[in-house]
Amino acid sequence: MKVGVLGLQGDVREHLSAVEAAGAAPVVVKHPEDVAAVDGLIMPGGESTAIGKLLDRFGLSEPIRKRANDGMPLYGTCAGLILMANEIVGDEDAPHRLRLLDVAVRRNAYGRQVDSFECDLDVEGLDQPYRAVFIRAPVIEAAGHGVEVLAERAGAPVLVRQGRLLASSFHPEMTGDPRVHEMFVKMVAD
């Protein structure tokens, strides 16, 4: 089972190790033909405007959107969540994006770099709390009826699932805890 990691920017190496730790074969995805060769795809955090432009310019947006619409599991973390969101709130210069997930997000809404933080989350389906790392993270301000909230913090969803789409405000690749990646790998296996 091959799980791709979009390799344009961000914690690509860390996501690849986490995928391996979760029991799947990690593959870097940088070209349109790579999208066809994976069973699921993770879009790491980074800078969503730059990633959105690169996705369009190198012909990756359409293949990813099409495969996700056809049922390929897709997991967006931080900037990856922004790229999946249907709506960006309070941003004149919203990035180009895939518009797959029925949520409204506000970019950088947990504050600046110095406001970045870690916290323990209770996650649906996990027995023990999960240590989550938020780095200039987006806030999910609204989620549609088809969106299941798997974890929340201070009243806002931070880990959500809609069908075969998974998205988190936080970075799951930085703590060495593979449980959220395992959750995604299980979605790919099912």
Partner: peptide, 10 residues
């Protein structure tokens, strides 16, 4: 330069 940094092996 951003594009060449992204696709540095190509």
């Amino acid at each position: 330069i951003v594009e060449a940094t992204t696709y540095f092996n190509d």
